[in-house]
Design a protein around this nucleic acid. Structure first.
Lengths: 342, 342
DNA sequence: CTGTTAGCGCCTTCAT
DNA sequence: ATGAAGGCGCTAACAG
C-alpha cells in the first residue's frame, strides 16, 4: 500500500479521507456545503499528502484559467515597476495568476504571443504600444476580455481603458512656467509620436500657451520619444540652431534627464537660464541635479485599477469604459522654485 | 453543418482537414514527420478556424506546463527591470511562459503561492529573499526544479545559483578609495543583513582595509539595508556622533542616494570632503549629483543566465551549481576622480 | 506516415 | 450532504 505518492492527486486524497473525489473537490472549491467532520478529514488528508491541485486539470475541467495576461511593450521603463506591483497586488488579492509577456517581434498575422491566446488566459491587460489597433480588434473579436492601459480603445470597441489625466496637468505645469517664472519661449519635447500620453501632454502645452497669449512656435517642438538620448540629441540640435528659449517642458522625466545633460554640457544653467520640467515623477526625479519639477502620476494605482476592471469584466461582463486617474504637480527646483533652499 | 466554431478544438481542425486528431497534434508539435500535403491541409484548417491549442489540455496531457515561475521579493527595486527583461527574453526564446508572483504574506506552512506549486510550473526562479531556507528545502523536496538568484543554496542542496562577483569588486572599489584618493576612514553602509550580496561586499571591504594596513573600525560600519531612507538615517546619526570619516562605501546605489542627501544636507562636500561610492550602477547612478562611482552589475545577464540554467535543469536534469557573473568598477565623480571634467 | 485508443486530473451535472 | 459517471481538449503509446 503506497502511503505517500510523490505527486498526489485528488484520488489519493479521497482515498485517504474515505470520501469520493467529488467531496474533495467540494472542499477545495468551498462552493457547496460539506459536513464538519468530512471537511476536517479531507483537509487533514490534503495536509498529510501535501496535495496541490493541478492547475491544468482544473482549468481544463472548469474552462477557466484563473490567470490574467499582461502584454507589455518591449521597452520596460522605470514606471514599469510601480505599474507591475499595482497589477500584481490586485491580481493576487483576487486569487488569480499573472502571466507576463513583452511584445516580442510578432508578425502581422501573429497578433498575440501564443500563450496569451484566448484559451490560456481569462483576460488581457494591454499596455500602450504593445499591440497595434488591428491586434486589439483581432483579440477583441476572439472574445477575450481585455483592458487597455494608457491607451484608449480604437474603433469604438467596447474595451475599457485606464489611464491618467495628462492634459490638465501639462497645462498646469506649463502655466507655472509662464506665470510664476515668466517664461515665454517654452520648448516642448514631445513623447513617442503615437503615444496618447504624449498627445494629451502636447494639447495641454498648447492650451497653456493659448490661454496666456503666447504664440505657438513649431520650431520649439522637438522629438523626445520618452527617451534620454533622443531628448539629448534634440536639445543639442536646438542649441546649435541658436533658437532662443527659456524653458523646456519634457515629455517625461527620462527625457528630462537628457535635456539636463545637454543643457549642462553646453554650460546653460538650470534653472537660472532655462527652466526644465518633466512628467511622471519617476524615481530619479527627486535625486537628479537639479531636482526636477514634474507631474506625479499614480502608476501603481493605474496598474491596480486596470487589473480590477479586467476582473470585473471577466466576472460581470461590465466595467467602466474609462478610468481616469488624477495627477499632481510636484514643485522642486528645476523650474526655478526653491532655489537656494536646502 | 457548423462551419466556424467560436472556440475550435483539435477535433474541428481534424474534421476540416480530413485527418485524425493525432495528425493535427503532430503538426502542432512538429515532433514526428508528416507528409507535405497533409501538413498543408492541416495548417490551412488551423488558419481558417483561427485555432489556438488550449494550454490547459496540453499541459494536462503532456504533464508539463511550459511555464516558469518567478518568485520575487516584495520590494521591487530598480534592478528588477533589467532582471526581468533578461529572464523574459530567455524564457520566451525557449518557448516558455513566465508566471510571476511577488512574495506575499505567506504563513510558515504555506511555503509557496499556490499557483507556483509543483503542478503549475515546470520550475522556479527564486530571487534572493523571497523564500526562506526552509521554504527552499520544502520546495526542493517537492521535486520542483529551481534556481536561486543572488542567493546560494542552503544546506548543501543541489540547487543551482546564479549571482555576481561581489567580493573582488567591493575590494577593488575600496582600494580605489584608499590608493587613489588617500582615504583612510572609510565608512561601510552594509546592505540587508541576511542578503548575501551584502555579506560579500562587506568581506571585500574588510579585505581592502587589511591589505592596505588600515584598521577595521566597527564604529564605521552602519546599516544601509539597500534602502535610501535607512542609509540617510545612518549617515545623519554618524554625523551627529562626530566620528571622523573621509569616505563612504554604500551597499548599493539606492542607499548611496540617501548618503548623498544626508551629506549634502549637512554641508559636507562630495567628493572634496568625503568620497562616496556605491554598488550596482543603477539607472540613477549616472545622473545623480555628483555622478556616482560604483560597480556595474550585469543584471540582465543574471536574469538570462538564471532562466537558461533552469531550462537546462528541466530538460537535462543537469545545470551548473554556480554561475558567477563578472562585475566592473565604473569611475565617475563621487569618489573624487574626474572632478572639474564636463 | 497515419489512425485508434487510453488516459492526464479535476469539475459538474445527476442521482441518491 | 455525498457519490457516480461523463467529459474538458490534448498527447502518447500502440497498431497498422
Amino acid at each position: 500500500m503506497n502511503k505517500k505518492p510523490l505527486n498526489p492527486t485528488i484520488d489519493d486524497v479521497a482515498a485517504l479521507a474515505n470520501v469520493s473525489i467529488s467531496t474533495v473537490s467540494r472542499v477545495i472549491n468551498r462552493n457547496v456545503p460539506v459536513s464538519e467532520d468530512v471537511l476536517a478529514r479531507v483537509e487533514a488528508a490534503m495536509q498529510e499528502l501535501k496535495y496541490i491541485p493541478r492547475a491544468a486539470a482544473r482549468n481544463l475541467a472548469s474552462r477557466k484559467t484563473n490567470t490574467l495576461g499582461l502584454l507589455a511593450s518591449e521597452v520596460l521603463g522605470d514606471f514599469f515597476i510601480p505599474l507591475l506591483s499595482g497589477i500584481e497586488a490586485a491580481v493576487r488579492e483576487a486569487g488569480y495568476d499573472l502571466l507576463i509577456s513583452t511584445a516580442a517581434r510578432r508578425g502581422p498575422h501573429d497578433h498575440l504571443p501564443g500563450s496569451l491566446g484566448s484559451h490560456n488566459t481569462d483576460g488581457l491587460l494591454i499596455f500602450a504600444g504593445s499591440l497595434t489597433s488591428a491586434g486589439i480588434e483581432h483579440t477583441h473579436a476572439l472574445g477575450l476580455p481585455m483592458v487597455l492601459i494608457h491607451q484608449s480603445t480604437p474603433a469604438h470597441l467596447p474595451v475599457p481603458c485606464v489611464t491618467i489625466e495628462n492634459k490638465a496637468a501639462a497645462c498646469q505645469i506649463v502655466e507655472h512656467l509662464i506665470r510664476v517664472h515668466g517664461r515665454r519661449r517654452i520648448v516642448l519635447l514631445r513623447g513617442l509620436p503615437k503615444h496618447e500620453d504624449a498627445y494629451w501632454r502636447e494639447v495641454g502645452y498648447r492650451e497653456a500657451l493659448a490661454e496666456n497669449g503666447l504664440p505657438f512656435d513649431p520650431a520649439l517642438v522637438l522629438p523626445g520619444d520618452f527617451n534620454r538620448e533622443v531628448a539629448r540629441g534634440s536639445v543639442v540640435r536646438l542649441l546649435e540652431s541658436g533658437a532662443a528659449f527659456d524653458a523646456i517642458f519634457s515629455g517625461d522625466d527620462e527625457a528630462a534627464v537628457g535635456v539636463l545633460q545637454a543643457l549642462q554640457a553646453a554650460g546653460r544653467r538650470v534653472p537660472e537660464e532655462v527652466s526644465v520640467v518633466g512628467f511622471d515623477d519617476q524615481n530619479l526625479a527627486a535625486v537628479i541635479n537639479p531636482p526636477l519639477t514634474t507631474v506625479h502620476t499614480p502608476t501603481a494605482e493605474v496598474g491596480r485599477a486596470a487589473a480590477q476592471q479586467l476582473l470585473r469584466l471577466i466576472r460581470t461582463e461590465k466595467a467602466d469604459p474609462l478610468t481616469l486617474l488624477p495627477t499632481e504637480m510636484i514643485i522642486r527646483r528645476s523650474c526655478g522654485c526653491n532655489n537656494g533652499t536646502r
